[in-house]
Write a protein that binds this DNA or RNA. Structure first.
Lengths: 166, 166
DNA sequence: TTCCTAACGCAAAAGGGTTTGCTTTACGGA
DNA sequence: TCCGTAAAGCAAACCCTTTTGCGTTAGGAA
């Protein structure tokens, strides 16, 4: 059932936007009963939040070429590719609405990945800078200006980050 | 009526989060009839989007000291101050959910302001860089990690932007 | 002042979302 | 195999949201 609900939600969120999706809609598309969804998740925002979280597998292998810049380039490209898929972008937007005072899972993973890169490379660059100047611009574009997200976005951001004076 | 609805929505969005606000709630708090809201805005997402837009007055005077860096610093500080107010942050998050294929008004203004700075200063820096490395990090923090938004955030970002090799 | 129009209040009705009690199914351990 | 438990289906009831028709009010133009 989880799988059916997940893909139903993904489809609907892409088709209509998360504000216009309802529990009965999801239930019908998933071939389950609305009451099953209510019992399991309580309400729609909770459901959306949970589904939006289980994306971009935290256990996937990270780039490890030995060169920080190379790795960041691959990693950023991965990020862009992921959110270029409309479903993922829509879920991110939905997650943004429910984010708030505590860190949302969506991005905790991104932060910890950034920390790992930095530690592995020996702090030539700060993890905050990776978040501010690579992750943030990408996420910002995904949410507010998806059409500015291109194949060159990732490379451009990494290059700018590395062109700063040391 | 617009004013009453606006402040009612702002209060409720701050109290409950935008997902849990309904039209009748807003109507009651604003002292108006729900049907008036429906006739004027059509539905809740539209209302939220419009209210979230009319913030950070587009007609306000922009910093103009003659020095680009100085101006950007003041401008970024304004942005941070604005979104440090919980109501404004909540409205931004709500707006994020409804943003999508066309540019949301929330940030069109920011973009045009950036363009103005660049033109006035004679293109020593690109407007895209201002968006990517100042606006985006701020907005990202507002939405996903509000507690990382401090008094030094704006200054730090501007400094980093200017420390790049020309 | 009078008329016209647009916006709002009011109330009833329609529609859809949510809750709830009960039944049925599926799975795992005696 | 035979329970016992947890999850899901089903259907009815409940409640809130949304729509709609109509009366009222406010503001502007003749």
């Amino acid at each position: 059932m989880l799988a059916a609900v997940r893909s139903a939600l993904e489809e609907l969120v892409k088709e209509k936007g998360s504000e216009y999706v309802t529990v009965p809609m999801i239930a019908e598309r998933a071939g389950v009963n609305p009451s099953s969804i209510y019992r399991r998740w309580g309400d729609l925002p909770t459901l959306i939040n949970e589904i939006a979280t289980y994306r971009l597998d935290p256990a996937r292998p990270l780039p490890d070429s030995g060169d920080l810049r190379q790795d960041l380039l691959a990693w950023a490209g991965e990020l862009v590719t992921h959110y270029s898929i409309p479903v993922n972008a829509a879920l991110l937007r939905a997650g943004a609405a429910t984010a708030g005072e505590q860190e949302s899972d969506c991005l905790r993973n991104r932060r910890s990945e950034a920390v790992m890169f930095v530690e592995r490379a020996g702090a030539v660059i700060g993890s905050d800078e990776i978040i501010d100047h690579i992750v943030a611009p990408v996420i910002y574009r995904v949410i507010f200006a998806p059409w500015t997200l291109t194949g060159e976005t990732a490379a451009g951001l990494v290059e700018q980050l590395f062109s700063r004076t040391p």
